[in-house]
Design a protein around this nucleic acid. Sequence first.
DNA 1: TAACTTTACTTAACACTGTTAATTATACAG
DNA 2: CTGTATAATTAACAGTGTTAAGTAAAGTTA
Lengths: 201, 201
Amino acid sequence: MGTKERRAREKEQLQRQILSAARELFVNEGYENVSMRKIADKIEYSPTAIYLYFKDKADLLDSVCKETLLSLLNTLELLNRDKSNPIETLRKSGRAYVEFGLQYPQDYKLTFVIRPQFQQGLGLGEGSVGERVFNYLRAMVSECVRQQAFRQVDVETTGQALWSAVHGVTLLLIDFPDFPWTEKDKLIDTVIDTMIEGLKA
Amino acid sequence: MGTKERRAREKEQLQRQILSAARELFVNEGYENVSMRKIADKIEYSPTAIYLYFKDKADLLDSVCKETLLSLLNTLELLNRDKSNPIETLRKSGRAYVEFGLQYPQDYKLTFVIRPQFQQGLGLGEGSVGERVFNYLRAMVSECVRQQAFRQVDVETTGQALWSAVHGVTLLLIDFPDFPWTEKDKLIDTVIDTMIEGLKA
DNA sequence: TAACTTTACTTAACACTGTTAATTATACAG
DNA sequence: CTGTATAATTAACAGTGTTAAGTAAAGTTA
């Protein structure tokens, strides 16, 4: 038999091909400026073929963003997490988060700004990749409190506050490239270090 | 004579009419979902009439955002700025900033996220309203340092870092309304207070 | 008042968008 | 070889931003 498996494999391959064409276009030209026809051209299929693999354009965006989140999660988890210095781990993770955003600015905006607009609220629900990213952050804060490097703060709120700070600096640097920022690395460090300083025991 | 003045006044009035129709639609339905024809319908003119008053749709967006920034600036400057307690002033301003964003979420996103995408970098240049808003922030930080409420931090960098933090929390609360945030006010206060704590002498 | 000019606005059109329904081609099973 | 499911296509719809050409009204001058 085996032909069924081959066909399934081919379908999956085409799905991936669509996804990677969409990502490349979204990232380079912006979600709004990419038409289904452009994607279709790139993969040399008719525009409507895409609809056999994705519900609509927003679904395509959603899939692209899920991949981005997985990649971010992977980046964060690669950081060697030596428990002996949880503050340093937190600092490094914060930097890695911002740097990820700056390295793939359009991916970042797609995931954390554009998508929420098109898929109200989804993406951070239970079991989602987004939730796993946030869990990672929560665990780090928790460790800082446990080792009394931080004072007895509310882990949940603190995690969200830290996320706010790194999210903010990432987006400002992406969205206003012409603003006279002080040296970029200095700004990122200041944001992270000031937050950490404010949380110390 | 006077007819010339009257005509000029009428033109200006129509321009304002277009602007306010555009703002209302942009805010309620999102920039992308508003067509020139919809705006035209609302003011009962033909779609192309708008082009006699605004270069294109992005120009319309730009004008709407300039108004938003002026309104934000006005909100901030209304805060009674008693110099005796610069930290408290800073804290109140931070809260006012975030609350402004949450009160007019679509305006805020239009101004600080959508527009930069359509009008690369503009809006924070010299003499702009955006610059005036940031000057306000810089002055507050400067006062904190002068009175030695803050340690001897770099005013420029610190201002940018504070902006990052409030921008971040504002956007997260707007973009992920379904995320299980801890109580909203508590989160906002935590972000602002943690930053301030980290800057104290 | 009559003819001319400027201003304000509209109509028609172009090339493009996301998406659906109907249609064709392809590959499989019996 | 025939019938059937699957995959992909073509055609079409209603809508988009924007431009060019045309029209109606108002102001100016004789």
